[in-house]
Design a binder for these strands. Sequence first.
DNA 1: CAGTATCCGGTTTGATACTG
DNA 2: CAGTATCAAACCGGATACTG
Lengths: 119, 119
Amino acid sequence: MEKKTVTTKGINNVCKHNIRAIHDALDIIGGKWKISIISCLTFQSMRYSELLREVEGISGKMLSRELKELEFNQLIIREVIDTQPITVQYQLTSYGETLKHLTLTIADWGLNHRKKIIG
Amino acid sequence: MEKKTVTTKGINNVCKHNIRAIHDALDIIGGKWKISIISCLTFQSMRYSELLREVEGISGKMLSRELKELEFNQLIIREVIDTQPITVQYQLTSYGETLKHLTLTIADWGLNHRKKIIG
DNA sequence: CAGTATCCGGTTTGATACTG
DNA sequence: CAGTATCAAACCGGATACTG
């Protein structure tokens, strides 16, 4: 029951605890493009081809793969619209919207970082 | 000057703008382990071997590689302590500490996510 | 202790061509 | 339009052995 030992253990537990939580989060949103896609859909729902244009650098293969995973994890909904030819609209679920704060936090930091290194 | 056009362009610009910012951020903190390492060092500075224990699953090779990159980007400081044998202490820079909010946000979401899927 | 060097299989990713 | 199939290249990352 020595105080220092208890404190250290306390910190280490918080640390491991957080790492586990981070790991859980990154399992879902940790891909190379997922945060970007979610961020996009935060502003408005979009079609496949729109996302392809908006998410700079992503290939079609990667986009459909990442979308599939996001859908599987119930962060987005895929809606097929019966036009000719068909179009597909992607939108965040309400669960996906719980990531809004997270994506904004990352974007904020990235913006400040760019300011810092580019000046 | 039609209103709808202006609005749409505005949204798209915000979208691309955010994606660029996210991309900038992920360049720095997007590795498999970086957020976890930073989260760890948020609580206290640590030695190499302590990090190896705390960051579950990481290998020595990956840890030193990630630490090198974090140091290069001035998020952490590596301090060699002249014991016998030498020990090395890693700590966040004040710039690295600007990531505190971000890591907590991710950990929070991950925690809630675990609650959701495990119940 | 705190790493580095090497080997090597597995995964990720891009380019391109193709489909309904 | 919204994808899928296939191949090849690049990268990731573990195990092991080694160094100062």
